[in-house]
Each structure stands twice: as structure tokens, then as C-alpha cells.
């Protein structure tokens, strides 16, 4: 019996390399990237707000935690070139949140404690593509990784998965956020290597 069967080789070709976008490399740890001091908003003061709909919508931490949740196992890709496979999150789907708000917007601009913003087309955050995540690996999300809650949009570069999110504004126009307004790509698809303006 050959040491390496065709079946084994076939499985190898479907291995992690097919899950790593161009220009990325695999990491086992979870690098921390921050553009400012880590906020520590007490949960009793935390709210999540959706602006720009027919009525403003807002949830306290307890109200937000009472919304239906989903567990998500997914690969994540940072524009600083690391990728991490099979990360496990729990949070509230954007489908759930947007289903509670009447609107005719095409885009959102997420806002966060610390002043960070990032923009997303609604077609890239609906149909099971995005969550507001508050658990990572079965534990409450640590502040350095964006806790108490962060955006999770794993099919785009991870700067779109805004840490310390406090809500978003629904908009007709795609308004560039913190990084998108100074060099980074307006969408950021890692499979198309949309890192910078013009990519």
C-alpha cells in the first residue's frame, strides 16, 4: 500500500490553502490591533442603537442579550495579512436587527466607543453574512478584542468587523469610515485583495 494515497493527496489540496486568500498567512494566536485606547464602557451604560430608520431603535445590554442569537464558526482575514481559521463566535445576526427596523437604506455606517467608524453595503451584511458578536470561543469577548460587543463580517477584511460597536446609521450613500477615508478600500474583499484605494 503506498504511503501517500491519491485520496490523501486529494484531501490535502482541499486543505487550509484553499481557505487562505491571496497574500495572507495563517496564525494560531489572535493578534490585537487598536487605533486608540481600549474603552471600558460599563454594561449598565452600554446601548446598541440603529439610526436612520423610520423610528430610532435602541437596546440596553440586557435587551440586546435577550434577542435571538446564533453561533458562528468562521475564518477571519486581517488586512495586515494574517488569517485565522475556525474562530467561534456568538452574537445577534444583522438579519435579526434589520428585521426590527423599517428602512429603505442601501448602506450602514457603524459607530463605536472610541470614535471608530466603518461603512458597509447592506447586501454585504444581510442573508447570514454579519453579526454583532459578544462571545468568542465560548467566553465573553475581551475588551482588547472589541468586547463587550463587536461587528463580525468575516467575508470582508477584519477592519470592517468594528470593535466596541455601539450601533450603526442606515444611509442612502456609502460614506467612507475611519480607514476607508484615508487609503483603505471602500469594500475590502480579501479574495479580490481589495486592500487599498484603487485595488
Amino acid at each position: 500500500m503506498p504511503l501517500i494515497s491519491r485520496g490523501f493527496r486529494g484531501r490535502q489540496s482541499e486543505g487550509p490553502s484553499d481557505r487562505i486568500p491571496p497574500g495572507q498567512h495563517l496564525v494560531d494566536d489572535f493578534p490585537v490591533l487598536s487605533a486608540g485606547p481600549t474603552p471600558h464602557t460599563p454594561l449598565e451604560e452600554w446601548t446598541f442603537t440603529i439610526e436612520g430608520g423610520a423610528e430610532p431603535a435602541s437596546w440596553t445590554w440586557d435587551e440586546f442579550r435577550a434577542l435571538p442569537t446564533e453561533e458562528v464558526t468562521t475564518d477571519i482575514h486581517c488586512v495586515t495579512k494574517w488569517s485565522k481559521l475556525d474562530t467561534v463566535w456568538r452574537g445577534v445576526s444583522l438579519d435579526t436587527l434589520l428585521g426590527l427596523v423599517e428602512h429603505d437604506a442601501g448602506y450602514l455606517l457603524a459607530f463605536c466607543d472610541g470614535g471608530y467608524t466603518t461603512n458597509l453595503p447592506l447586501e454585504h451584511v444581510t442573508d447570514g453574512k454579519a453579526w454583532i458578536a459578544y462571545d468568542y470561543g465560548g467566553e465573553p469577548l475581551e475588551p482588547e478584542h472589541g468586547g463587550p460587543a463587536r461587528m463580525l463580517v468575516p467575508h470582508l477584511y477584519f477592519w470592517k468587523s468594528a470593535k466596541w460597536i455601539r450601533g450603526f446609521r442606515l444611509q442612502e450613500e456609502d460614506e467612507p469610515g475611519f480607514w476607508e477615508s484615508n487609503g483603505y478600500h471602500i469594500l475590502g474583499d480579501p479574495w479580490l485583495e481589495q486592500r487599498y484605494w484603487g485595488d
Binding site: P31, G36, P37, Y196
Partner: peptide, 29 residues
């Protein structure tokens, strides 16, 4: 803060962002 996707420089007093610099292999913003 330099471990972000770019360099972010803040005021030591009010923490406001003073400068943002992003560098690609062929451009700087």
C-alpha cells in the same frame, strides 16, 4: 498606535485623532 492597519497619532490631553497615516507598497495616505 502603530499596530492598527495604519499609524494613528492622538492628542495626549483629549485623545482626539491628530494624524492618520496609511502606507501601501507604492503609496502613502
Amino acid at each position: 498606535y502603530m499596530d492598527a492597519p495604519g499609524t494613528v497619532v492622538r492628542c495626549a490631553h483629549c485623545k482626539a485623532v491628530l494624524m492618520r497615516v496609511v502606507r501601501s507598497p507604492d503609496r502613502t495616505w
